[in-house]
Amino acid sequence: MIALLQASVLAISSFGFGAPVLADRADEKVKVEFRRAETKNAEGLVEAKVEGTRTKVYLHKEADATNKDIASARVFEDDNKKVLIEVTFTKDGAKKIATLSGEHKGKPVAVVIDGKVVCAPVLRAPLTDKTQISGSFTKDEAEKIVKGLTAP
């Protein structure tokens, strides 16, 4: 069920973060967006660099899902002790993510946190009501992100 962006996107590294995003933001709300991205520029797209990499993607202007589409988030470690963030979408959010994955299959989806593209994996399978985000962040950084995602 967690078709995750791991099996499904596993280029989102399952939504892999390239660099720490929230170094000193313990209790602040985080702005998160899931946006369609392209590998080549076209009219109306905005160029962005994936944090911590040399990879460029070209973002569609509108977000497909945002904070309001997230019901909950939690931090955990996988069997290899890699820190992951599991995001559960609201009912409406799950519909939006399913539509995104159906219409944008084989293309990247950018996870944008506070205006920075933290990863842009290629959608390989349908997304559901849950996804996992992995990357090169510490447990403390992941906890700050989760706290920011779930802040009132």
Rank of each mutant, 00 (worst) to 15 (best):
E62M: 14
Q6I: 09
L123W: 02
K144T: 09
K49V: 15
E86N: 01
A142N: 05
E141R: 02
S72V: 00
K81M: 09
K116L: 06
L84P: 00
A142M: 07
G102M: 13
F137I: 15
S136P: 03
G52L: 13
A23H: 07
A71H: 01
D140R: 06
T99L: 14
E51H: 10
H104D: 13
K68M: 05
E38R: 15
A7E: 12
V146P: 00
D140Q: 08
V75P: 02
V21Y: 00
V75W: 02
A7W: 06
A26Y: 12
I2A: 11
E141A: 05
V32K: 05
E47I: 05
A125H: 14
P152E: 07
D27P: 10
A65Y: 00
A71P: 00
V75N: 03
L22T: 09
G106Q: 12
E47S: 09
T138Y: 08
E43M: 04
P126R: 13
K144R: 15
K91N: 08
L84M: 04
P152V: 03
V146M: 05
D79Q: 12
K105R: 12
R54Q: 14
E33H: 08
T55F: 12
V87Y: 00
E103H: 11
L4C: 06
K56V: 08
R35F: 03
I70K: 05
V122I: 15
A142P: 00
Y58V: 08
I85H: 01
P108W: 11
H60T: 07
R35S: 01
L22C: 11
E51W: 06
S13F: 03
L22N: 08
T138W: 09
A11V: 13
N67A: 04
V57H: 02
R25S: 11
F89N: 00
I113M: 13
V111N: 02
L59G: 06
S134F: 05
E47Q: 12
R124W: 01
K116H: 05
V75E: 01
K144V: 10
G102L: 12
E47W: 04
V146S: 02
S14E: 03
D24M: 14
R35T: 00
G93C: 04
L149H: 02
E43W: 10
S13Y: 03
I2P: 02
D92S: 12
I2G: 06
A42H: 10
S14F: 03
V32T: 03
V9R: 07
L127H: 10
V75D: 03
G93L: 01
D92K: 14
V57F: 03
G44R: 14
K139F: 07
A11H: 09
A71S: 06
D64Q: 13
T138I: 12
S101T: 10
K105S: 07
V117E: 02
L45S: 07
R36K: 12
L22G: 05
D114N: 14
K49T: 15
M1L: 09
A151S: 13
D27Q: 15
D140A: 12
K105E: 06
E43Y: 11
E141L: 04
